[in-house]
Design a protein around this nucleic acid. Structure first.
Lengths: 142, 142
DNA sequence: CAAGAAGGTTCAGTGGATGAAGTAACTGTA
DNA sequence: TACAGTTACTTCATCCACTGAACCTTCTTG
């Protein structure tokens, strides 16, 4: 992909616009419930299953030291808790509290509502989009 | 879209992953050239044509007061300049310097290279994706 | 010309992010 | 078993991004 394919540039431009917009919508939905975007993303990562902080750093694509602060703030608000992993006592598993799970669900509901970019697409197009997006994501092991 | 359409949830989940990834790639490409992601996005907005700061705030989806700081930092590094609009002396048009234009081009080249999500797609699929993304973006007046 | 609106700036405060240094816990090897 | 090295998380200093409120300057309108 070293050559400058004009099609790629078009796609990247469109992606760039969309991601900016999607991020803004996500932040707004989170903000409506007193969360920052990063906090909401972290919460979404642990809500299905408790995860070690190191995995969260990978999922959020940031440094582990940053995760400490994010978890600190969420914990202070009673939305997640640190559990020591019985298998490996260095590891802290981040689990949502009941309040955390509920809040995350509410943010997602809002996001669903707020994700109005999708309104431009008919159902078959959404399916197409989903399949394309999946194809762009490497399948994750964990 | 108040109902919880499972397809929408799938699409949103996929979008969420992709945007996180795309943002990270963008930041990395920018960082490789000494820019933050926000600075690179601002630079990309002005590189085709000088724009007033208020438009930049809209494009970046942030408060005008934030744009001041971004422009300050870019200006300090000689990448953009503030020009007074002859028509309306309240307005400051942000224009890239030559160094700014060149740097922006280099970041884009890197981004093109770094946007490896696209590698999973064949050319016809990229066209499909571009068209879908366009359909999701409202046409902007300016 | 006066009142109000609009474009930018300043300031204080919060949160997000990194990198380096530190602590505690695990692992492998002799 | 001892200990060297690695891994998981934390702490700290530092910078940038972002917001909201207060402010100045420059239009615009009655």
């Amino acid at each position: 992909m070293t050559r400058r394919d004009p099609l790629d540039l078009e796609v990247i431009t469109a992606l760039s616009e969309l991601t900016t917009r999607f991020f803004a919508d996500y932040d707004a939905a989170a903000g409506a419930h007193g969360l920052s975007g990063a906090q909401a993303r972290l919460l979404a990562l642990v809500v299905t299953e408790p995860r070690p902080m190191s995995k969260l750093a990978v999922g959020l694509r940031c440094e582990p030291s940053n995760v400490t602060g994010l978890v600190d703030r969420l914990e202070k608000h009673g939305l997640v808790e640190r559990r020591v992993d019985a298998q490996d006592r260095r590891v802290k598993l981040i689990a949502p509290t009941e309040a955390g799970s509920e809040l995350s669900a509410r943010v997602w509901a809002d996001l669903n509502f707020a994700a109005e970019p999708l309104r431009g697409l008919e159902q078959p197009e959404r399916i197409q989009l989903r399949d394309l997006l999946r194809k762009m994501s490497p399948h994750r092991a964990d």
